[in-house]
């Protein structure tokens, strides 16, 4: 019981103070590993990161579930994840009400007008990060087979949209790529 309350407090704090993507939670989790709760150590945390990155679900949420499970089983996983999400939910609901009040304000609109290209740049950076985990790196800067598959998939998808005006569903792309990965032995 005590562990669950500790989990609520610790993961609420992580949700409240990690600003940005899922990776922002990592320093806090390493901090938890160093504390003497005995929930998990830094080596276990490294394994959890590897699993969280490649399994379904946003990485930050996966990390919370995994870390909570290590601390207190299934109840711990659920508790940690809900506690992590709660601050974000509350804050965004407040921000939304605030924005609604000021919608049509020329300064608010002007700010978002400039923010769109800035956030576009941030998403481009995140996209490069995704390239790093898929076809960049290795011994030769670009992993040739991975890169070839990337070009084929992207080219095929764009071409299909151009020809038919329809889009191939992202789920279909992920399933096909998973099968190809297993077949080619990527």
């Amino acid at each position: 019981m005590n562990t669950l309350i500790l989990l609520i407090v610790e993961f609420f704090k992580i949700g409240l103070f990690s600003v940005g993507g899922g990776l922002a939670t990592l320093p806090f989790l390493y901090n938890l590993a160093a504390k003497d709760y005995g929930w998990f150590d830094a080596a276990q945390l490294a394994d959890m990161i590897a699993v969280s990155e490649s399994t379904p679900g946003p990485m930050g949420v996966n990390m919370a579930t995994y870390a909570g499970f290590h601390a207190a089983g299934i109840a711990g996983g659920v508790t940690a994840t809900l506690s992590l999400a709660l601050p974000g939910i509350i804050i965004i609901i407040i921000v939304y009400k605030f924005l609604e009040k000021f919608s049509g304000n020329k300064y608010v609109e002007g700010v978002f007008y400039a923010l769109h290209p800035a956030v576009g740049a941030l998403i481009t950076m995140a996209c490069i990060e995704v390239y790093r985990s898929s076809f960049l790196g290795g011994d030769t800067f670009i992993r040739p087979v991975h890169f070839a598959l990337f070009v084929v998939v992207l080219g095929g998808k764009l071409l299909y949209t151009k020809r038919t005006g329809k889009k191939i569903h992202p789920i279909a792309v992920i399933v096909v790529c998973a099968a190809l990965g297993a077949l080619i032995g990527l």
Binding site: V130, S134, L149, V173, C177, A179, G181, L186
Partner: peptide
Amino acid sequence: IFAGIRVGVAA
């Protein structure tokens, strides 16, 4: 499988 998925996600 996950290497394949990551390439798909990149595209």
